[in-house]
Design a protein around this nucleic acid. Structure first.
Lengths: 327, 327
DNA sequence: AACAAAAATTGGAACGTTCCAATTTTTGTT
DNA sequence: AACAAAAATTGGAACGTTCCAATTTTTGTT
């Protein structure tokens, strides 16, 4: 088979001794085709090496099996994990998924989506880049194309959205530290340009307010390892007596731990550290990281649930789980 | 525009006052269309909100602008980095790229490719999963579809392949350690199921042989953080006087460093550690990691070069660079 | 101004599938 | 065995584009 495949339904029909229409019915697994026809067509497909032409099918029919997954940043381990989980679930449903990466850039995001729109897309699943406009997102939706938002909200958008219980997660994290008798706490990492920052910060603050502790020790940073290091350095300068930190995510927590190492402080011993995400590495670290786990498979399943059955409300929260390790 | 888009070339033609054929010429940026026609059509496209139907075009014409990127494991940071770099370059060339993830599983890989083959694919760019068969890979290639292999070889395959200079990288790494007067060296991580393991090990061994040092201190492991930790633990047991290690990749090196921390040894001070990949985190670590950088953009560019101009030889080596930091 | 050559434009056919209404075959009932 | 109803099958039209050969318009030369 080193030359291009030219076998069409007509060829299959001829070999099977049926009409092209019957072949088409069998291909679409219609129950209108008899078992005998199904067998003959299956054999003919085998014999001819027929390959379904999805583009021709997609053009004629009004449906599509293409799901576009638009990820904000594939180089972020949690995003990658989520993308992979989602791809798997989507494929299990019988769809074909294609992933693209916006790199947190709205322009790239809209360029990519514009190009994808030249194909018949059954659904866009989007982790929106910062500053995504709600009218842009909403306009993607039409009779044939579903749009589902994931992990991040877009203000005023009417598109269904699957979110982890951000507030609950940091609330549990702060509570855990408080229950260990740790009261001088800070929130490390992220800033208000990120939609879920507000929720995570709010959970932290709620827990501290309930315990009548100061909830205004906040150190913003970029959400990467470097940000974690520098924010922790700031924190140690401002609050030399710090006892525990809740981090915006695991990557930030990794930076925090490195900075603690530099300062000769051991996570879990001198300072309690809790992350958010539960990356695979968190369990394997020298001091295994306590963290709030977002189950990527659960998020993926919720998205797929909406994909299949639509959504009745706009928001769907996926529960998170506090994983207590040694930090 | 909340309902599905029904504007076709015919509508654009009517509005522009030209024929559908002229519209088609303009869409394809043919120089056969007059400037006046181009302007009229552009205006009509703007006015009608026409969206090109790539599937119809692809069916009629024999060409395609779809590039499929089949990645072995998107949750590996270097793979993700490479995928993102490649996607960007491919888009720059005017193609549309779709990424899928085989998760190092040949079955998933062939399932995905079978589904993708239902679309007209201009090229498959593949980081092959372990145990990929050469005849399977070679059979993907035909008049209309190019196949390019990346980062890993498939034995006996005739498909063009872009590889980093693996052997040269570990050779430089070992040389650097030797030049610091470090002679009791080990190679940590990976195993022979990975195609580039042999090359990286060979570079290490060549350098040691040239220096008349023992080159058989080899500690295999899975290529993740956990593997690095356990292989380093083995190494410390077997060779308590170890002075330096060359790691299969950065992720393994991270595990090695953690194990060294546990043992109270400081990388760069007590033991020299060099990785392979140069992940972003390597520079930001507490002891910045020396490593062999594989320039993901350079790999992506080489792949794109083959995409555009074909390849005259089968293998294309992308040079690597030794990055000396504090470890 | 007449003409040839070149450039631009055009309508019909085609790509490979699904849809649809019409036809044929099978099943079930008396 | 005759018939009605149900099930299965079928050929032609259509999806929206590009290809192609034919036609029309423009350009350049004398």
């Amino acid at each position: 088979m080193n030359k291009s495949n030219k076998v069409t339904v007509h060829d299959v029909a001829r070999v099977a001794g049926v009409s092209k229409s019957t072949v088409s019915l069998v291909l679409r697994q219609s129950d209108k085709a008899s078992d005998k026809a199904k067998q003959k067509v299956a054999a003919a497909i085998e014999q001819t090496g027929y390959v379904y032409n999805r583009e021709a099918a997609s053009m004629r029919s009004k449906s599509s099996n293409l799901i576009a997954i638009v990820i904000n940043d594939l180089t972020n381990p949690y995003s990658a994990k989520l993308a992979v989980a989602l791809e798997k679930q989507v494929r299990k449903l019988g769809f074909m998924s294609m992933m693209v990466n916006s790199g947190e850039c709205v322009k790239t995001q809209s360029d990519l989506v514009a190009e994808l729109s030249q194909y018949k897309i059954r659904a866009f699943i989007v982790v929106p880049a910062p500053n995504t406009k709600s009218n842009w997102l909403d306009a993607l939706e039409n009779d044939q194309t579903q749009v589902i938002c994931m992990m991040r909200q877009v203000e005023k958008s009417t598109v269904p959205c699957v979110l982890p219980s951000n507030k609950q997660g940091t609330y549990l994290a702060a509570k855990q530290l408080l229950s260990r008798g740790i009261t001088r706490l800070a929130f490390i990492g992220g800033d208000s340009s990120i939609s879920d920052y507000h929720q995570r910060l709010a959970g932290f603050q709620t827990a501290l307010n309930e315990a009548n502790q100061a909830s205004n020790n906040i150190f913003n940073s970029t959400t990467n390892r470097f940000g974690g290091r520098s924010a922790m350095a700031d924190c140690l300068t401002t609050m030399p007596n710090i006892e525990g930190v809740v981090c915006f995510n695991d990557i930030v927590a990794y930076g925090v731990i490195e900075q603690l190492n530099v300062a000769g402080l051991r996570p879990g011993q001198h300072i309690g550290v809790i992350g958010f995400d539960d990356l695979d590495d968190s369990e394997l670290m020298q001091v295994p990281l306590s963290t709030v786990r977002i189950d990527a498979d659960a998020v993926a399943k919720s998205v797929c649930e909406i994909l299949q059955n639509g959504s009745d409300g706009q928001f769907l929260e996926v529960p998170v789980e506090l994983i207590v390790r040694d930090s």
